[in-house]
């Protein structure tokens, strides 16, 4: 009945800052970010890997924060909405989301932005259909998705790679 699991010390770079923290093996990354580091911008929507609200970047790639253990992030780099905001990486998307009213309650938005950012970075010539498919792992209950698709398409259209 006792919780016998040992604590692990992890070194993880979160939003550019090195963190050295003890974690329980069972703690998932999103709880670590929210509870231990106070980074509340990533949200917990389902804790079974479906809704996408906890999407963050692990070593530059989007992952579900509830399907990664904090201990797995040891010696890795994690970027959350707070870091993507501060670095300016998400700035164009954020501006487009605001301009297009691509968020309502905002609970899905940090995860949605992280997902959209990977699309913009890896598939700059994505079509509207591809945008819809790409974000279909991120659930939004408020918008009709159209404003989100419009906002991402705006950023894709203004991306220099497409102009080439």
């Amino acid at each position: 009945m006792e919780n016998t699991s040992q604590t692990h010390l992890i070194n993880v770079t979160v939003n550019g800052h090195p963190e050295r923290r003890p974690v329980q093996p069972r703690q998932h990354l999103i709880d670590f970010l929210r509870d231990d580091l106070g980074l509340k911008g990533s949200h917990v929507g389902c804790e079974h890997g479906v809704c996408g609200a906890c999407t963050v970047r692990l070593d530059g790639k989007i992952v579900r924060g509830c399907l990664v253990l904090a201990v797995q992030a040891d010696r890795k780099r994690v970027d959350t909405i707070e870091g993507l905001t501060q670095s300016g990486a998400a700035q164009a998307l954020q501006a487009a989301f605001v301009r297009r009213n691509a968020l309502q309650c905002g609970f899905c938005t940090p995860g949605m932005l992280a997902a959209a950012l990977e699309l913009v970075e890896t598939k700059p010539s994505a079509t509207r259909t591809e945008v819809r498919e790409w974000i279909s792992g991120n659930y939004c209950r408020c918008t009709g998705y159209q404003a989100i698709v419009d906002a991402i398409c705006d950023v894709l259209a203004s991306s220099p790679e497409v102009a080439k």
Partner: peptide, 19 residues
């Protein structure tokens, strides 16, 4: 017009109860 409170949410600075 764009919502004045939208950027706050887009930057992950909302305050939901669990926060």
């Amino acid at each position: 017009l764009a919502r004045p409170n939208a950027l706050r949410l887009a930057e992950g600075r909302g305050t939901y109860v669990d926060d």
